[in-house]
């Protein structure tokens, strides 16, 4: 029996303490937002926070969580479901494509902005390089982090494209 809090709630699971947090969270607690991508801490899709620090849940045993606090993508919004600035920026900048990596991206970006509210491009690259996006949304991830940080403005409301001559990037 391993006891911990997850998204603010006290929980326990009957599991081999060597089982990765990822599988305990997905299979036993039904929280499927945390994703399996590589199983070897190489892609970041499984990123959760353990006592606030981003960790790769596919390679961190649930035994490590004993007495500690896990936060998953399902637990970052406010008590009434208010989205965080990072989540809002992910929507306003239309970041996701398939979306499979985005829980991990958002968890990594959330930790980055908490520790470094005005990150430079180099800071963003360093903090986010552990998270693979196979669809290739990196340009938007970088921009959305800056939007969430208030460094760059959110995009204007959608508008009509001209029929010829090209829409501006």
């Amino acid at each position: 029996m391993v006891k911990f809090t997850i998204n603010g709630e006290a929980k326990s699971v009957e599991a081999d303490p060597a089982m990765p947090i990822l599988w305990a969270v997905r299979e036993q607690l039904g929280l499927n937002g945390t994703k399996f991508g590589c199983g070897a801490a190489l892609c970041g899709a499984c990123t959760v926070h353990l006592d606030g620090q981003p960790v790769r849940s596919c390679s961190t045993p649930i035994g490590e969580a004993e007495g500690r606090a896990i936060t998953t993508i399902e637990g970052i919004a406010g008590p009434e479901g208010e989205l965080t600035k990072v989540q809002q920026a992910w929507i306003s900048e239309q970041v996701p494509q398939c979306g499979y990596c985005q829980s991990g991206q958002i968890m990594a970006a959330t930790a980055l902005l908490r520790d470094n509210p005005r990150p430079s491009d180099a800071d963003i690259d360093a903090a986010m390089a552990g998270n693979i996006c196979r669809c290739g949304t990196y340009v938007r991830i970088r921009h959305a982090i800056k939007v969430a940080a208030g460094i760059e403005p959110a995009r204007a409301a959608p508008g009509a494209a001209p029929l010829s001559g090209g829409a501006k990037a």
Binding site: A41, S59, G63, E64, E66, G130
Partner: peptide, 11 residues
């Protein structure tokens, strides 16, 4: 080594 930290001293 991006993962694998073990916090429990016994383990």
């Amino acid at each position: 080594m991006a993962a694998g930290a073990v916090s429990d001293a016994e383990r």
